[in-house]
Every structure is written in C-alpha cells, then in structure tokens.
Design a protein around this nucleic acid. Structure first.
Lengths: 186, 186
DNA sequence: TCCTATTGTTTCGACTCGATACGATTTCCC
DNA sequence: GGGAAATCGTATCGAGTCGAAACAATAGGA
C-alpha cells in the first residue's frame, strides 16, 4: 500500500472515530459542528447560507439541523430587518455553555501528546491538504476577518475597524472571527 | 488558536468533506467503508463482529448496514457450519467491481499532490495519532496478518503459512490482509 | 442439564442527507 | 412601476445512520 493510500485510509478512519466520539450530550456530530461554527464566526457569517457553504451540505439539510438546535434551545433565529430573506443565528447561553463539553477536545488532547516536531509537520500538511481540497470544491477557505483583503484596521483617530467589502464597522471581536467573505490578501 | 486546536478543527473538517464526497453510486459513506474493509480483511475477519470493532459502531447498526449491502447484492452472508452463530461475509462480483469507483481515490490523489517530504511527515504523524486514539478506545490496530506475533511463515518443506492463534492454515493472500486478531510482534 | 457468554437480528426514535418543490423577498431591467 | 429572475430559507420524501434495548439462536462450561 502506497503512502498516499495509507493517508487516505487513515484520514477516513480518523474521521469515523471522531464522528463516533461526537455523539455526546444528546447532540449529533453535525449539530456539534454547527454550534462550533457559530461560536467562531463573525456577525456577517452567522447565517444559514454561510453555514451551508462551510459544512458543504445542501441548504435543506442545514435548515433541518438548525431546527433541531432551535428546538433544543441552543440557538436563536431572527429575521434580518433590512433584507427579510436573511436569518441571523446566535448561540443562546445554554448553547455557549454546552460548548464546554465539546467532544473535539479529545482530539486536541491527542494532538497535544504528539510532540512539537510531529505536531508542526501534521498541522502544516493538513492545512495544505484542506486548502487543495476546498479549492477544487468551490468551498472557500473561511479565514479570519483580520487577514482579509477587505479588512481596514483602526485608524489613528480611534475609529473602529471596518470591512471595506460590506462597508460596515467591525468590533475587535468580530475581526478575530471567521468570515465567509474573507479573501486572503495578496 | 493553538496548533493542537488547528489540527483538531482541520481533521474534523476534512472528515466532513470526505464524508460529503462519499455519497457516490447510491452508497452511503458507511457502506463504502464496509465494502472497503471486506476487500482488505482476511477470512478470519470477514464477519459482522470484526467489522463492528473496526468501525467502532454498535452491532445493531452494523447489522443494518450489512442488510442494506445485501439488498443491493454487493455482499453475501453465509452461516458458519462449525459455529452457527457466526456469519461469513463476502463481496460479490458487483461488489468488487463497484470498489473501482471508490470515492476514497480522490483523497489519495490529493495526498499524491502533496510532495514527498510532506507526505511522509503526514503519513507518519497520522499513524501515530490513530494509534494513540485507538489504544485508548479499546479498538485494535487491525494490522496485517504477516506482521502478527501469531504468524508462522512457510517452513522449508513448502508447508503453507499458519496462524498460531487460531491454528489454521493461511493462504498467501490471507496473510497479506487485515486481521482482527493481529497483535503486533514485540 | 442448567447457566451464561457470544453472535447477530430486530425494532424504536431521533437525526442525517440529497433531491425536489415551495414560499417569501429582493433586485434587475425593460 | 411592474413583471421576471435571482436569492435565501423552509417543508417534505425516502433511504440510511446510529445508539439503545429487547430478543433469538447457539455454544460451552459447571
């Protein structure tokens, strides 16, 4: 078996193990990912559309997942008053609290035990792999706001950060979060 | 975000992307994994029990998945005549043919494009990670028969290979395949 | 022979997921 | 301004996943 084969098989298998581990606290793996995403996405990206792109699923499926989370009172949905087709998603307090039990922590701990050299190599190679796959997948990289070409840092006068694409102000918090619109600066 | 966090997030995300890709030819991701396993497992390991351990799922779920594959005529189930509780699983010809469309190939190609150095690093680190996780998971490593401590290679007289644990003969093919019982030599 | 462990199957309920059809808006363009 | 087209989200369907729990059948030991 070639090295590439091994990588493919192990990645597939790791994915399965993680997914099995993710049946925690009555939530399904997908629901955990949605919760996690909402915790890390900035205000422009906390909507069903962005989540759909992020997860790479169809909007119908995402809609159902969000319904399930809503029923459990882990998120709220609010119609945008300016464009009433849009929906804003927010974690509720129980939702935020639940994230402390996020099963992804077990993966992190395992990565921790890997040793610095191996860990760096793994992190680098995985990033490259994910990038290669997403680019061919029309999925965006979903990088952090601050690194986006449309990000305008706070000027000398103490003005807030701004997004030059959406022409909107950005809190310090927002600018450190994930954004659907993010385009890597070149 | 620490390197370990990044690794955890990317692995989770890669798993999702792969899983989405695995909806091919009318099969679900789990069904593909079962098929793949059966193609790579030796005769002692082509049964529901071993598959259950390999996939890390409950036997009920596995039973259903196997039923689905049976309905599609991709596998056969046959009761063991010696111990009638056991079931032998085999790929049918259509099952084997279908494996040529295995969506895991797309992952392999991506790994291919990674470059030798990165690829080796990734392969090594992933193996270590999977090992660490499985060991804590009471999941076995499922290594290849030949590397097992119970493997007895063909003697000078031209006798067949043998498994000293099950006290059974091994074809050349079997001994190159995955075995549930495999225990790494020390 | 009875007791117990092993191996699989069945059933249940909640959820996933793609596909498809819909329902509101909003936007574009004549 | 008004109608078509695009956008964003929801509802429904069918096959499947998945854990949990109950249930069968068989094997093996006391």
């Amino acid at each position: 078996m070639s090295e590439s084969d091994e990588i493919a098989v192990i990645l597939e298998r790791l994915g399965r193990v993680f997914q099995n581990d993710a049946h925690v606290a009555g939530l399904k793996p997908t629901q955990w990912e949605a919760l996690r995403y909402l915790a890390r996405a900035n205000k422009f990206s906390r909507n069903p559309k962005a989540l759909t792109v992020y997860l790479g699923m169809t909007k119908g499926t995402v809609s159902q997942t969000l319904n399930a989370l809503d029923r459990k009172n882990l998120i709220t949905k609010k119609t945008d008053m300016i464009d009433r087709r849009n929906v804003h998603l927010e974690l509720t307090r129980p939702g935020k609290l639940l994230l402390e039990k996020d099963p992804i922590a077990t993966i992190r701990k395992k990565a921790e035990s890997l040793g610095k050299t191996n860990r760096s190599a793994l992190s680098g190679a995985l990033k490259q792999l994910l990038g290669a796959i997403l680019s061919e997948h029309d999925g965006r990289a979903f990088s952090v706001c601050k690194t986006c070409r449309y990000f305008r840092g706070r000027a000398a006068g103490g003005n807030p950060h701004r997004c030059a694409l959406l022409d909107a102000p950005l809190s310090v918090e927002d600018s450190a979060q994930i954004c659907v619109e993010a385009e890597i600066r070149n």
